[in-house]
Amino acid sequence: MRVNVVAFCCNWCSYAGADLAGTSRLVYPSNVKIIRVPCSCRVDEAFILRAFARGADGVIVCGCHIGDCHYATGNYHTRQRMESLFGLLAFMGMERERLRLEWISASEGAKFADTMAEFTAQVEKLGKNERYTGDCIKATDAEAAEGI
């Protein structure tokens, strides 16, 4: 079975870098699906856990290079949060290689494609994820029903 990789990309740098990879017709695995966020600091731990719970096998969070965040300090928070979160998840038995934080600028189309290819290969080596799968965070289902 094919592995699923979810990539959270910030609108100003990494999402633009992904677009550049496209304009340059660089090829990377179709296992990777991108969710656009305004800033990498928008990525909540709940999104990452939900991804694994719903069948993702690898999650990569992409943002602007440190010091270049469109929102001045956003990616410093991303860095601190993701380092804590990945450490905690690894502590709880999630394979650390299924998680990645990468800084990709709008001009780094090649880096985007290469990173996605490399990460997908890494996840494929680990195989389908069987840890921390299943439904979770029912509260947000309730939110969903109310259309908030």
């Binding site: 731990e45 709940a46 856990l49 719970a53 804590s84 979160l85 905690l88 998840l89 709880m92 921390y132 799968t133 299943g134 439904d135 979770c136 965070i137 029912k138 509260a139």
Partner: peptide
């Protein structure tokens, strides 16, 4: 609490998220 709920596997996420 954002983690109110009764889902079975949610026990695990409850503790990860609460600690986090």
């Amino acid at each position: 609490c954002i983690l109110e709920g009764e889902n079975p596997l949610e026990k695990q996420f409850f503790h990860i998220i609460r600690a986090y």
